[in-house]
Design a protein around this nucleic acid. Sequence first.
DNA 1: CAATAAGATACAATAATAGTATCATTAAAG
DNA 2: CTTTAATGATACTATTATTGTATCTTATTG
Lengths: 131, 131
Amino acid sequence: MKLINRDTDYAVRALVYMARSPQQVCSAKALVDELRMPRAFSRRLLQVLSREGILKSSKGKGGGFRFRKLPAKIKLKDLVEIFQRDFKETRCIFKKKICPDIRTCPLRHKIQGIEKKVVDELAAVSIADLS
Amino acid sequence: MKLINRDTDYAVRALVYMARSPQQVCSAKALVDELRMPRAFSRRLLQVLSREGILKSSKGKGGGFRFRKLPAKIKLKDLVEIFQRDFKETRCIFKKKICPDIRTCPLRHKIQGIEKKVVDELAAVSIADLS
DNA sequence: CAATAAGATACAATAATAGTATCATTAAAG
DNA sequence: CTTTAATGATACTATTATTGTATCTTATTG
């Protein structure tokens, strides 16, 4: 069903790894070594987490990434929102063509109810819960 | 979030249309006219529903498709299973590489729990409910 | 200033989805 | 028995999304 994609999946693993680790700082290289991620990928992943306020970075020798938010405050929902563009809105596939009004469409109504529940579930799980 | 894709979406609309219609038989052409579907698409859609046992078909002049199963017995889950190949199993993205065992992975465990709930929700909605 | 690490961004390869076209077969109507 | 209206089967192209990689710049430490 693919609720989560590769990026989210790797992000969770990286963050769980960091939460478990006694070290405060984690470099992109550490993920390559410890989680066997492709190097280019590990770089990109950590950069995004940093830009989005999950981690904070320090450059230069001995630098790397550390948590900005507490693991207990980082929810699966946050990560899915960052890494899955399709997550935020339920677009109507039919646009103007068939669907007269998304608000009155019974299918949309049901589907959105289900999606709402999924979001609530994802919001209830944190990195700390997985560590 | 895209729980359902285009094919499922169109299929639901076609079936709801048929369930509402006083006519017993519906041709591919009727969907083109009534739901403004692309012709080639309407053809393919009805053929699949027929092959999968949702509809039955009759060839030749005056032919078309009619329900084989009662609308109340056709669940969203059935349609999603037919039209979305990704639906059935949660594959582990990491295969042999990182993930030591999918059964002990806490992320997978949580995700599968959520997916289970989605399936239950989809199994609770029928075409008749939407008509 | 040399080495290490992140910042930013651009590119290429692959896979999934969306959309179309064609020829064969069947059945009813005249 | 020919015409017409319908489905059966299948193959193909185009578009979009995902996945994976590379490169050059900037900052920090020793």
